[in-house]
Design a protein around this nucleic acid. Structure first.
Lengths: 152, 152
DNA sequence: TATTGTTATACTCTATAACTATA
DNA sequence: TATAGTTATAGAGTATAACAATA
């Protein structure tokens, strides 16, 4: 049987992992002149192609006002442009600049490198145990957050 | 041999875990009227007892100016007080109010509950595999961030 | 001269509410 | 009447730099 101590230690691992992953990501993005929120917008844009701000607001789960600010920042730093929407004169289309498209494409390369750091040379058995354990924990966490969401 | 796809999927799990843990924590703290940064300050205070702001700045790894703001917020919301330092008239001691001490003590209870959500009913073999995998990944991540730190 | 914490200034992320232009 | 995006306002976290009081 597992002791409370063992569970607390495992939780500590999970919390530290979340912290370190966050820090690593923030630093890496900072080297590209990006913040996590702006990078998230680029990521969504990469998956959707040119998008209106209201679509981006829904995708990121933030207010329209906030999207105005994020796009302002990304325009000022040369990652995206605002173009008139071809048929709806109320809307604007946010599109990549060359630099923005290049940067977003490199997110994938960055992820491969990060996967190397985390998993290269790890024995298969341990890797498999990790993957199964994470799948289980993620299921529990998703379920817990869904019920918390529903209750609110 | 592991494929790139398997590694990418495992990385996706790690990133999602970091995201969900962060969100869950932020929501839970919000219910107590706290932000992550303010909660972090309370956590350090709990481990150290009454502390000067400069000690807290070093503990949180943020600027002294930032600590002024965090303590301002925690004083305004009734979690801590500023007291004169008994021997150094430049410094102030940040101490818990009753409410702050109670809240910080409940962080531990909250962690036990969170551990329950993540691990209750998980087969021992899977739990052990998860713990070993996390230990390995954490070692790699700490090492990578330490060398990145040293290089900068 | 060095340290502690403040004020001054600035940038980012976030929100709600009011408003304009357009559908 | 509803939608898209803006301005207005506000709060929180973060930083550097200048400064006052004290060591």
């Amino acid at each position: 049987m597992r002791t409370d101590d063992q569970r607390a230690a495992a939780l500590g691992q999970v919390l530290e992992l979340a912290l370190l992953v966050n820090d690593d990501m923030t630093r890496s993005l900072g080297r590209d002149g990006l913040t996590p929120s702006r990078a998230h917008l680029l990521w969504e844009l990469r998956g959707r192609g040119p998008s209106t701000q209201s679509v981006l607001a829904a995708a990121l789960g933030v207010s329209p006002r906030n999207i105005t600010g994020l796009v302002d920042g990304l325009v000022a730093t040369g990652f995206v442009t605002r173009e008139p929407h071809p048929t709806d004169r109320r809307a604007t289309l946010v599109s990549f600049t060359d630099r923005g498209a290049r940067t977003a494409a490199e997110f994938e390369r960055g992820q491969l490198e990060f996967a190397s750091v985390l998993f290269d040379g790890m024995p298969d058995r341990r890797f498999d145990g990790l993957v199964q354990g994470l799948a289980d924990v993620l299921d529990r966490l998703r379920a817990a957050m869904a019920t918390a969401e529903a209750r609110s």
